[in-house]
Computed example of a mutant assay.
Amino acid sequence: MDHRSETGHVMFLSPERVFYAGLLGRPRNRSTGSLLIYVGLGGRLMLTCGGRTQADLAIALIPPFVEHTIASDARSSLCFTVEPESVTPAALDLLARRAADQGPALAERICAAYVRLREGGCGPGFTTEELDTIVLGAPLARRRLDLRIAEAVARLNDFSGPAATAADCAAAARLSQSRFLHLFKQQTGTSFRAFRAHKRARHLLHFVNEDLNFAHLAQDIGYPDSTHFCHSIRRFYGLKPGAIFSGSRDLRIYRGAAQAEATAVAALA
């Protein structure tokens, strides 16, 4: 029997969402391009953000690209992440207000979602709408991107393919690079460079419970060398790659519909 099925540490991973239940790691500054919702699993949270520290929190919501430090008085915690380009700005604002106004109730719901997910409430091949409904009670309103930008986003989300540059994406969209970069930021709310850096670091999540050579992994997910890889991962996650892998040995990963298919294709390549 796979020992990972016994620990309760799980991650539901898709291009648009992550639901993680596991070790939080030592508190250090971190900043990712996702909207993050932390919930203490049998404990309370302490958040430091913008020079202000808040303790005894049931829930903490962090907007994308906001540097923060999160700690828990429990060994494990929950984190639900939303990729902002997949959701309307209005939906993100509503979610932030819900966390502020109904924090304890939302934290209780997310804890109940964890129990349901752990017991098989959502298996491999899940959709964004299914996961949102289990965790939040209803799907978040989907952002409609310009088709050319949507194709670039899909390309950057594909961890099994070669790294994409702005020039590559502009050529595929039949736009000048300057026009593409302007349209990309207008549509996603994020510069192409910051968006690509975030997605590249996010690709690490697919491999955290595997025994891999970091130098090879760095090249596989688009980093020029292991030094850049380690620096970027520490900046985004507040932890060194070795600490992330060490804390994820007992993690069971379930992939959403799109990435379950991409993983299968990569395995056959």
Rank of each mutant, 00 (worst) to 15 (best):
Q187C: 10
K240H: 12
R116C: 03
L204S: 05
C230L: 15
L106H: 12
A264S: 13
A163Q: 12
F236N: 12
H9N: 14
C49T: 13
R118W: 15
D168C: 04
V18D: 08
S31V: 11
H68S: 01
D93T: 13
I244Q: 06
V39I: 10
D73F: 11
Q186L: 10
R97P: 08
R4N: 08
V66H: 10
P15C: 03
L251V: 05
F229H: 00
A194Y: 07
A55M: 10
D158F: 09
R196D: 12
P63Q: 06
F80E: 11
R97N: 12
E83A: 11
I110V: 13
R28A: 06
L205R: 11
R143W: 00
R179M: 15
L181I: 04
A264I: 02
G189P: 00
G50K: 06
S191M: 00
P63V: 09
R202P: 02
E130L: 01
D73P: 07
E210S: 12
G51H: 07
K240D: 08
F180R: 03
A113D: 05
D73E: 06
P104A: 07
R30K: 13
S77P: 11
V10H: 12
A107P: 02
R116Q: 13
D73A: 05
L156V: 10
V153W: 00
G238R: 11
L13N: 05
V208E: 03
D101I: 04
G42P: 07
T128K: 02
L140R: 01
R249F: 01
G161S: 15
I70R: 00
A91H: 03
E83R: 07
L45T: 03
P27L: 02
F214Q: 10
S191V: 01
A107G: 00
Q54F: 15
S72V: 07
P241E: 04
L13V: 04
G103R: 00
E210F: 14
A201R: 03
P84Y: 07
D211K: 14
S226L: 15
T7E: 10
H231N: 15
D211N: 06
L57C: 05
Y254A: 15
L147N: 06
V39N: 01
A74F: 12
Y114R: 15
E85P: 00
L205P: 02
P15F: 01
A163Y: 07
M46P: 09
R252K: 08
M1W: 08
A172H: 02
E210N: 12
L78C: 02
L145Y: 02
L183Q: 15
C79R: 13
R255G: 04
T227E: 13
A90S: 14
M1C: 12
L23V: 14
S72I: 00
F236K: 09
F192N: 00
R174W: 15
S34G: 09
I59M: 10
Q54S: 13
E16G: 06
L45V: 08
A164C: 08
R142Y: 06
V153P: 01
I37C: 15
S14M: 06
G42C: 05
R52S: 10
E67Y: 06
A21I: 02
A74W: 01
A105W: 00
T7L: 09
D56P: 11
S226E: 11
A218Q: 04
F80R: 08
R142M: 10
R174G: 11
R30D: 11
G8Y: 14
L204F: 01
G123E: 06
